[in-house]
Design a protein around this nucleic acid. Structure first.
Lengths: 291, 291
DNA sequence: GGCCTCCTATGCGTAAACGCATAATGACTG
DNA sequence: CAGTCATTATGCGTTTACGCATAGGAGGCC
């Protein structure tokens, strides 16, 4: 019988294409990954992954094995969820993922109170650009800025986030209030125009003739830039309002905030506890959030 | 992500019910198995297997995990077969399973020639009372005394084995030739009457009034007992005839001999080679085998 | 009750596997 | 073409996990 963990390593390399990348996903070193793969192929007697200038590529034998390894992975993840779902302790770790500003400005006070109420539960707050997978157990709970779609998720709406066009008092004093078209104004945008977040769609329409003052994917950079007078930014009310920025006309965009978790872990007490705290905490702040 | 090999260990313990038994199936020590299970449960945070006086029993959490672990096992075995099926070398190991006497008397000369023809291939001849599973890769090829049933097997008929009632010349001189009913005679049987092999069904009918001289599950013990004059044995012609035993009336039972292998490995060259050698070798001996 | 067998737990020494550091290689960029 | 960044390969020291041996139960059987 083959070593199952070797199959796991093989899958990781087949996916990543490099030993280093595969090692990262499994939390081991590249040297270890290389040795495991070598040992696995030696025992299998067949070359499963061909080394090319571009990395490792599956051989026909590898293709055959890959499909089965993926089936194993699906089952392994299901097992992990099943085990977690049966963990009845009000203790342990809960991994919550969301975007940075929401985490820092809105969720932090909720989590602070929660941690005091449940000293046995350690909250890990993961801020990721990428949407982490609940099915793959990259996180236990996710606060998302849109209604989550798909499979085996349990979702609850947490509220609405209102957005507005903001600028600093100094900027307004210099440029005046913008009007439709935004001629003569500067806007602060994301690095790419591609992400069609509703608030940016609105902004692009209103400021169709404005210049670009700064581009950054970081909302905090956008906020500070706006405060520094670099231009008009499209910001969530919860982020802009406390900073004394001036709200401008032309935007009443809203986005829904949803809480998601995997169906398999919906009964897990420590997840339920945090989930409830988030629902209540968000409800209490709804005035700030909608603006 | 959990260690897949830990899931493997968990599955083995859940199946075997004991650490020792599980360790045997995985080819490791009991102490290692105990430590792995402890580490796995510590990481999982839940008790998966409850220790009882009768061994380890699944907790509800364990039940949930077991189903997924079994899915993993199925995939792991399929992967192993897929890999083996892609092994194009005419070298390596071939594990052939069958019953002891057939292996020793009939297959041995065939395999001896085969090993000379293919020095790179090592044949492992596994004689097991139990029918080993080809799907679980307990063996690569199986020579079976009945038409194999089920799933993903590729089968070929190798021939027929004839059986007869045999006794030693000395025994005949003392007891005379038996007649229908077998009154006044002694028979040599298997330890249990349960296995309803066709040749024993015939014998039980013919010798309905005979006494039992000896019981043994070993065909060689039966043969030697018969030669020693302990009674009439039901033996394959290939086993009894070369020993100068006297064939008695009342039995012309036959059993079919089949070669089986798993569909996934049917193209593997070294298996094909041995398979062909067995087919030819058995054909050449068909006169001896049918009697 | 004593004996036997099979189990689990644990201490100890070793060998295998790992992480780290470094060197070598190759691809992309300005 | 140099410089940077990523990769893989390899040597070394250490930790970890393992096998072995043994002790301590827990049935089963005469």
């Amino acid at each position: 019988m083959l070593d199952w963990e070797d199959l796991h390593s093989f899958l990781a390399v087949a996916r990543a294409g490099t030993l280093s990348g595969a090692a990262r996903t499994l939390g081991i070193r590249q040297s270890t990954m290389g040795r495991r793969l070598a040992a696995f192929e030696a025992r299998a007697g067949v070359l499963l992954l061909q080394k090319t200038p571009r990395g490792y590529v599956l051989t026909p034998a590898g293709e055959a094995a890959l499909a089965e390894a993926e089936t194993m992975e699906t089952a392994a993840l299901a097992a992990e969820r099943a085990i977690t779902g049966q963990d009845t302790r009000l203790a342990g770790e809960v991994r919550l993922t969301t975007i940075e500003t929401l985490a820092a400005e809105v969720l932090m006070p909720i989590i602070a109170q929660f941690s005091a109420d449940y000293p046995g539960i350690l909250v890990k707050l993961i801020c990721s650009q990428r949407t982490l997978s609940l099915a793959a157990r990259e996180a236990d709970l996710a606060v998302r800025m849109a209604r989550p779609l798909g499979g085996d998720l349990v979702i609850r709406k947490l509220g609405d986030i209102g957005y507005g066009h903001y600028a600093s008092p100094a900027y307004i004093a210099q440029h005046g209030l913008p009007t439709q078209g935004g001629a003569g104004h500067k806007v602060i945008l994301m690095e790419d125009d591609s992400p069609n977040f509703p608030e940016y769609v609105v902004m692009a329409q209103y400021f169709s003739h404005a210049e670009v003052g700064l581009r950054s994917d970081s909302r905090y950079v956008q906020l500070k830039a706006c405060m520094a007078g670099l231009g008009v930014a499209c910001l969530a009310h919860y982020l802009a309002a406390p900073q004394g920025l001036v709200r401008l006309p032309g935007c009443d965009a809203k986005r829904e905030v949803w809480l998601a978790q995997h169906r398999d872990t919906r009964e897990t007490p420590r997840f339920k506890a945090l989930s409830a705290a988030l629902v209540n905490g968000m409800k209490a702040q709804s005035a700030l959030l909608t603006g």
